[in-house]
Every structure is written in C-alpha cells, then in structure tokens.
C-alpha cells in the first residue's frame, strides 16, 4: 500500500444519516497529493453522498473531514468557497448550467474567482474544450444541444478550467458507450497527469477503475471495507472485491437483502 503520511484529503469516521437512513456509517479515507483514488461500490451505497460531504454540500452527521491538514467540515460558507476553489467536480448528471452557453459554463468558475477577465474567458474556455477533445465550435452551443458524451466532456472541461488541486469525478463513464467511456478514462488520466492534480473517481465500472486508479477503495454498507492498488484488486481473495470484479449475483454482497 502507498504511504499515507501526508494526505491532501482525509475523512475520519465520517457518518451521514438521513433521518433513520444510515447511509455512511464511519468512512475512513485518505487521498495523497497527486494520487488517483477510485471508490467502487454498488448503486445507492452513498458514493455521491461521500463526495458531497467533502464538498460541503452535505454536512456529515459526525466525523471529521480535513483538507491539507485543516478541518473543513464545519466552515462558514465564505471560508468554504476558498476551499472549494481548489476542488473541481464533475457531477454525475453533468449539471451544466442550461441557461448559459458552453463557453460561459466552462469559464464560470474562473470568472467567479477572477482568474480571468471577461475578455479572456472565452479563450480559456476554448483551450479547455481542446483539452477534452471537443470542437471549439461547440463553445457557443447550449448544453441541451449536445449529446450525453459531449455533455460529460464539457462538464470535465468545466471541472479542470480552474486548475484545481483535486478533481472529483462522479460516475464519469456511466451511461456512455464503451468507446466513449474509454475516451473519458484517458481524458481523466491525462488531465490529472497534466495538472498534477489528485483525483477521486466514483465508478461501478471495474474496467475504468483499474485503468484510472493508483488505489481502489470499496464502499459497502456505509464503510470502506477494502483498499488496495489495481494489482491487489486482481489478486485479492476478498470475497466482496471478487464478486464485484466478476459481477456475480452470488456472493457476500446480497442485493436482495439491502433495502433501497
């Protein structure tokens, strides 16, 4: 396993309950600088909730979240903005602003942080479009005019436009054809390598996990039940990982027992 002494993001015993639903029951997780962590786990296990807790969009019921050694789980909204300006997020559904054109979407964060001026914003957007392999001509289109794959790429362009230290990807390849999924995987690898950013990627696509990950963590029943490198995933005899890897219906992960 990798050396975890100097983590950029650390979750300590994070719990999140919605009423009587106990979604996260004590997550312990570390992400080092420049590391690519992939979280796998079935749908509805709280993967998106974990990311939202890191971003401060949801408040953990208990536990600590640290960024660069500082507690960030109880910050005021204004201090929160400073932390969030170092984090980029690709949402599961893209979450592009549908009232703004693609280039306005991409340069939105950089404009908000005054990293660019109104006049250079479009140039930045076009650079980012090129990085994710989109034609600069789509800059003036609106999100609803793009296909699903193109929206994912535009969302990716928006996430990297502010040069974040960490990028969070929520199911970047779900709902895409296998070829487009691979394109997105490569994009994630290249943008994290280019920017030197850390990344947390959520997926339930094992191929994509093995491709992107320096380290894989498995979320099950509100806890991280296993962590290891991509190679460990293939060699481990952990029955949960085995089952997830092979996609069998039989095994310790019993969907029928889990109430959604």
């Amino acid at each position: 396993m990798l050396d975890n002494t100097n983590p950029l993001i650390e979750l300590r015993d994070v719990k999140k309950h919605f009423g009587s639903k106990k979604i996260l029951q004590g997550i312990d997780l570390k992400v080092n600088k420049g590391e690519s962590l992939v979280i796998i786990g079935g749908s509805g296990t709280g993967k998106s909730v974990t990311l939202k807790c890191i971003l401060g969009l949801l408040k953990p019921t208990s536990g600590e979240i640290l960024y660069d050694g500082q507690r960030i789980d109880h910050l005021s909204l204004r201090k929160r903005e400073d932390v969030n300006s170092k984090i980029g997020m690709l949402f599961q559904g893209g979450a592009l602003f549908d009232s703004l054109s693609i280039w306005e979407n991409i340069s939105f964060g950089a404009l908000a942080k005054k990293q660019v001026t109104q006049s250079t914003a479009k140039k930045l957007a076009i650079e980012c479009l090129e990085k994710v392999g989109l034609d600069p001509l789509v800059a003036n289109s609106y999100p609803s005019e793009l296909s699903g794959g193109m929206q994912k790429r535009a969302g990716l362009a928006r996430a990297i436009a502010t040069n974040p230290e960490v990028i969070l990807f929520d199911e970047p390849t779900t709902g895409l054809d296998p070829i487009m999924a691979n394109v997105i995987n490569d994009l994630i690898i290249s943008v994290t390598k280019d920017l030197g950013s850390s990344a947390i990627t959520i997926t339930h696509d094992m191929n994509s996990a093995l491709k992107i990950a320096d380290r894989v963590a498995m979320l099950w029943d509100g806890r991280i039940i296993w962590q290891g490198t991509s190679q460990d995933v293939e060699n481990t005899d952990n029955p949960y990982i085995q089952q997830f890897y092979q996609g069998c219906a039989d095994g310790p992960i019993d969907w029928a027992k889990k109430k959604f």
Binding site: K52, N84, G88, F91, G93, A95, L96, F97, G109, A112
Partner: peptide, 14 residues
C-alpha cells in the same frame, strides 16, 4: 434537482 445549484457552490459562487 439536476444539481446545478450544487455545481454553483463548487464553482465558488453563492
């Protein structure tokens, strides 16, 4: 419901 409001927060906008 399409998380655009969450996206605003992640882009340093209140």
């Amino acid at each position: 419901v399409t998380e655009q409001v969450d996206a605003l927060v992640t882009l340093s906008t209140n």
